[in-house]
Design a protein around this nucleic acid. Structure first.
Length: 514
DNA sequence: CTCGACACAAATAG
DNA sequence: CCTATTTGTGTCGA
């Protein structure tokens, strides 16, 4: 598995489009390879969950932006608040990023333990951040089949002992395997039918010109638990380009290999196929789930295939649109139900905590991610009253979230992010709020089947929302902090808002600063 | 209808 | 400021 893809340079492309592409120049952008670390650009671009390029995608979408600016689309599209977590920070002006689809709780397919004398049980955590490409439409997480998305994956073992041999005992089996290494991969399945897998494809920057492949398992080392304390730390790579966390690992010389990083970003991924019935017909809408999997290398113990799946985490259900954005803009799915708009109330409470997802998610496994949040579509940032305040604490523990939390949340209407919105609404770049999230990452690995309480990890308390004082930069490079920026609109709704302790900024009060 | 390919244009990054 | 690169997406054709 050296590299799933050849390095990006497929220079060969001739001229198809006239655009410019002669050769891959930016090699940087090459697809991530498993043992390699990303280059700088990559780091920022995708590797970093939180940091993506500042604006990039958002603005990019012509359709949305333009449309949105001039015409508000239907209510549905109304912009909502986003939770942006990114910290591009450093400076105001950056745009924020929309929320990202949450991952559900971790599902273990067996038990890991150190095989030394200690036999210490190992708790596994999988972190995955779907970075880019997704937005909420009609309260459902949506993306375009043709657009890229990326997924940052990492896992951690607690406790971490690098030299100790590990054993894996699949659930329901008595046969334990020696684990020589780990790898992660992403895949997708149909929501209704887990057995129905959907292929994911990975392009090179050259896109059509370059080869495409399926995401492959990438060998990774566990991220040290310590990293956890800094959510960001783990997430963000050091400036030097190497992942901070990886250094730790390597330093120890774990068996995995020096080249194994602790985190891998699958970039330029797209679904091979769109979900069926994208809302058009009466037929039931199909949904997919992205799955972040952790595999163990058991050598030949299990037969020819050395890889045994240890655990995985499914994302919230999502719709993959097969057509151009333009087609959907005017179109409305059906409806009714979810109509976000309709409800302005998106309130549902579903909860989302989105902001936290990124950072904390890193270490908190199941918890935070559900972000969906519900913001319906309120357009009024202020008028409505959500005024700031709605909030509450409950977010953390929303009962509702459990099993179908994902669903629920999603239904709830997550935040929708629309770039344009920002413009229209208000742009306050400066409202960045820093959030320190730290949840402890404790969760039980035991067996959480699927549903778990995710809430636990999130501590509203810890989150700090305010801080605008302008120190964005500080946090940023300081490292570990997470700052979330909000964009102008806080559509926060009561309900949802509750979920976001962090994000909810006082309506205009704070923002104007600076 | 969906998928795939081609091509254009916009935005970003350097 | 300019250019190279990358990505989103409109559209056509299969």
């Amino acid at each position: 598995m050296a590299h799933p893809f050849p390095p990006v340079a497929y220079g060969g492309s001739s001229s198809t489009a006239g655009q410019g592409m002669a050769h891959a120049h930016r090699s940087t952008t090459t697809l991530p390879h498993p043992g390699t670390h990303l280059s700088t650009r990559e780091l920022y671009t995708s590797a970093t969950p939180a940091f993506r390029r500042p604006d990039h995608h958002i603005q990019r979408s012509p359709s949305f932006s333009s449309l949105r600016r001039h015409n508000p689309l239907s209510p549905t599209s109304t912009p909502a608040a986003y939770a942006s977590l990114k910290m591009d920070a450093g400076y105001p002006g950056s745009k924020t990023q929309p929320s990202i689809p949450p991952l559900g709780s971790l599902t273990s397919l067996g038990h890991l333990s150190y095989s030394d004398q200690s036999s210490t049980p190992i708790k596994v955590d999988i972190n995955g951040v779907i970075d880019k490409g997704f937005f909420v439409a009609d309260s459902e997480w949506t993306c375009y089949r043709r657009n890229y998305f990326s997924c940052v994956c990492s896992f951690s073992l607690t406790p971490m002992m690098h030299n100790a041999p590990i054993r894996f005992l699949p659930t329901g089996s008595t046969q334990a395997y020696n684990v020589y290494g780990f790898a992660m991969c992403i895949s997708a399945v149909v929501s209704d039918n887990d057995s129905h897998t959907i292929d994911l494809v990975q392009h090179t920057p050259k896109r059509d010109k370059g080869p495409i492949a399926k995401p492959e398992k990438v060998r990774l080392s566990a991220k040290p638990p310590q990293a956890s304390h800094h959510p960001l730390t783990s997430l963000y790579a050091g400036p030097d380009g190497s992942l901070g966390s990886s250094r730790y690992e390597q330093g120890f010389g774990q068996s995995q290999q020096s080249s194994a990083p602790t985190e891998h970003t699958f970039e330029r991924i797209q679904f091979k196929q769109a979900t069926a019935n994208n809302g058009k017909r009466r037929a039931a809408q199909q949904y997919y789930h992205l799955i972040v999997e952790l595999w163990a290398d058991v050598g030949q113990q299990g037969g020819s295939d050395p890889w045994v799946k240890v655990a995985y985490r499914k994302s919230a259900k999502m719709i993959v649109r097969g057509r151009s954005p333009g087609h959907y803009q005017s179109e409305r799915r059906g409806s009714a139900s979810s109509g976000p708009g309709g409800s302005g109330g998106g309130s549902i409470g579903g909860g989302g905590y989105s902001s936290g997802m990124l950072g904390p998610s890193e270490y908190s496994t199941g918890s935070s991610m559900m972000g969906g949040g519900g913001y319906g579509q309120h357009y009024d940032p202020r008028s409505s009253g959500y005024g700031g305040t709605r909030h509450h604490h409950e977010l953390t523990m929303e009962p509702m979230i459990s099993a179908e939390e994902v669903k629920a949340i999603a239904d709830t209407k997550g935040y929708q992010y629309y770039p344009a919105t920002i413009y229209e609404g208000e742009q306050d770049p400066r409202h960045q709020q820093q959030v320190e999230l730290f949840s402890h990452a404790r969760h039980d690995v035991s067996e959480s089947g699927t549903t778990h309480s995710m809430s636990a990890a999130f501590d509203p308390t810890k989150v700090k929302s305010e801080m605008e004082a302008g120190l964005p930069s500080m946090f940023y490079h300081g490292g570990p902090y997470y700052s979330a920026q909000r964009c102008g609109r806080f559509e926060g709704k009561a309900t949802s808002s509750g979920q976001y302790p962090t994000l909810i900024p006082p309506p205009s009060t704070t923002m104007s600063m600076t």
